[in-house]
């Protein structure tokens, strides 16, 4: 059974004119690293919200179809029940930090769920260690940089011990350096068997780690598959998705009758491929 199952799911926000999600069918298995991408307003955020029940529990609207997460239908379970299954990280880090220091922030989730004190302490120490937050321990959110805030927000989400980490453009408000740090962290988590759903525009940085790319447009899924396969489609350019530079060069070369053996996703891959062709 898949961990997340969208079955013919549609959603329209209360007061909106058009559907935010249109007949979405999507299965996500345990251990996958799914990158979700598409132009603004295509329903990526709504899809993320649907995974932990914010849609339809928090954001009201008209719904059709079902979302089943770890065997639980999101129509019947509230967000708090789904919190230990799907952990969400949002765009604006400072809106996710609600307490006055980092320790408290990480403890906030487990405290809400009524986890035992000793266990909370253990999780806090573990995450501070894992995400390298020791120097921030006593700091007010206002005293931290955006990247640090987002790292704390991730720690706070991970403290719930979720089965899947859903990150909705976690790097959009960060500088490139901090963005790389956050994305590396997410890739690292996935290597430790965490299922990841990541909404991201900087495909240059994430497509090499992803196991799957899902492309959305106007509320529906238009492409779904291996990163190399999806990103080399012409559809990407048509709907305006910024594919990695290396893939772009691959496509230009192909147009001029210069075929490489496989689709490159990073500069390094492209370099080796070109070298191989040259040696032949």
């Amino acid at each position: 059974m898949p961990l997340i199952e969208f079955a013919d799911f549609s959603f329209k926000y209360l007061g909106a004119d058009s559907l935010a999600l249109r007949k979405v069918d999507l299965n996500i298995e345990e251990g996958e690293y799914v990158v979700l991408t598409g132009p603004s307003g295509c329903g990526k955020t709504t899809l993320c919200r649907a995974i932990n029940g914010l849609v339809p529990q928090f954001h009201r609207g008209y719904i059709a179809g079902n979302v089943i997460v770890d065997g639980k239908n999101t129509r019947e379970h509230n967000v708090a029940e789904l919190a230990p299954i799907a952990g969400l990280v949002f765009q604006q880090p400072e809106n996710q930090l609600v307490t006055l220091n980092v320790e408290r922030e990480i403890a906030f989730g487990p405290e809400n769920l009524g986890v035992e004190r000793k266990e909370i302490r253990r999780r806090v120490e573990e995450l501070i260690d894992m995400l390298d937050l020791e120097h921030l321990r006593e700091k007010h959110p206002h005293e931290m940089s955006g990247g640090e805030q987002q790292r704390v927000a991730m720690a706070a989400t991970l403290a719930l011990k979720p089965k899947v980490l859903v990150a909705d453009e976690p790097t959009s408000n960060l500088d490139p350096q901090s963005a790389v740090t956050i994305l590396d962290l997410i890739a690292d988590l996935n290597r430790r068997d965490m299922t990841v759903v990541l909404v991201e525009h900087r495909l240059d940085l994430v497509s090499k780690d992803a196991s799957r790319v899902v492309l959305m447009d106007k509320g529906s899924i238009v492409a779904d598959g291996e990163p190399r396969e999806v990103l080399s489609m012409d559809l990407c350019q048509e709907i305006g998705v910024g594919i990695p530079k290396a893939t772009q060069i691959y496509k230009r070369l192909k147009q001029r009758g210069f075929n490489l053996d496989k689709v490159p996703l990073t500069g390094a891959e492209l370099a080796t491929l070109v070298q191989e062709v040259k040696q032949r």
């Binding site: 969400l88 949002f90 996710q96 009524g114």
Partner: peptide, 18 residues
């Protein structure tokens, strides 16, 4: 509110404290 909800705010009647 969205973020707090996602972290189980108000979920459990017996909230614990670290």
């Amino acid at each position: 509110a969205e973020s707090m909800e996602s972290r189980g705010f108000g979920a459990n009647a017996t909230r614990t404290y670290m």
